[in-house]
Amino acid sequence: MMRRLLKKAGFYLSVLVLVSPAILVFLWMLSLSFKNELDNTAFPPVFIPNPPVLSNYLDVFAKNNFALYLWNSVLVTGGAVLIGLLVGVPAGYGIARGKAAKFAILILIARMTPALSYLIPLFLLFQMIGLVGSITALVITHLVITIPIIVWIMIGYFENVPLELEQAARIDGATTWQAFRYVALPLAKPGIVIGGILAFIFSWNNFIFSVVLGGKNSRTLPSAVYNSLTFEQISWGPLAAAALLVTLPVLLVTVVAQRQIVAGLSAGGLKDG
């Protein structure tokens, strides 16, 4: 009994050590967003706001076109995730059923390749066709993020769907498309959910594409926060408030769907022997 308790205590201590730096940074950013500039620059640092102020959040909306940047992020991320699902789910099915291991490796390489590697050729292409600074250009570039994630996850899911079920549907007269739509697709719904969630998180947080390809009226929230920095003086309170507002949608999605994320990744990682 004591040994089991020690193991459990050791596990929770290890988790605490691993996540505590991220938690402390987040709490410090939260503290900055509710303090005035005098407290934010005080030494020794003031951690607990007394009293908390909301002016930093009001400044974010008053001094920046935050609503426009939020809408741009919704358009870019939503479009990239939707197109990624429309392309990635059938692609994952085809690779899984065709046992195309080489294509799976290419998808993995595409996922591992830094996004910056795609930026220069895409910028030159969009410059030639006049799409630099448009929402369309950002949606297309974000497909580099969403499609590899979704395809890779869906390959694992479709490999776990018993082929016998589809064969039985074909014996009953179903076409390949019908077997995919009515048999394989419903069984792979958890994979579609987890693929969409992870694609949303990575696309929403992307910074570099919007900085280079986004225009004044098309930049997304992460780059808008970056552009709010000034060389004369950094206002830490409004900057922290803006960063929290950018992070809030991802936090909400992660908290609400944490069970689906864990269950989806676990199920997708299982392979039949």
Rank of each mutant, 00 (worst) to 15 (best):
S210H: 05
T141K: 03
F200Q: 07
K271M: 07
T176A: 14
S235A: 14
Q260F: 09
Y118F: 14
N205R: 13
P51S: 07
F202Q: 11
I95L: 07
S31P: 06
L187A: 13
I150A: 08
F231R: 12
A267N: 09
R170E: 13
K102W: 15
V250G: 01
V89K: 06
V53Y: 07
K99I: 07
Q127H: 11
V161E: 06
K102G: 15
S210I: 06
L119G: 04
P162A: 06
N65D: 12
P52V: 00
V151P: 02
R181G: 14
Q178V: 14
L165N: 07
S73A: 09
V53G: 04
A242W: 00
A199P: 06
M2R: 15
F47G: 07
A267L: 12
G264S: 00
G84H: 01
Q178N: 15
I194T: 15
G98S: 02
M154F: 06
I155R: 05
G264R: 03
T113N: 10
E37W: 00
L106K: 11
F34G: 08
T41H: 13
R4M: 12
Y182N: 15
S33T: 10
G130W: 06
I23N: 09
I135K: 01
V17L: 15
L198G: 04
P222D: 04
N56M: 08
F126W: 08
M29K: 11
L165C: 04
T220S: 12
A100C: 10
N72Y: 03
L122S: 11
I107K: 05
T146N: 02
T136R: 07
G191F: 11
A240T: 06
L163R: 15
L229D: 05
G273E: 12
Y157H: 08
L82M: 01
L124C: 02
V60A: 04
V161D: 03
V225I: 08
R219I: 12
S20F: 13
P90S: 05
K189N: 13
L239S: 00
T141A: 13
F202S: 11
Y57D: 04
T247E: 02
P148W: 05
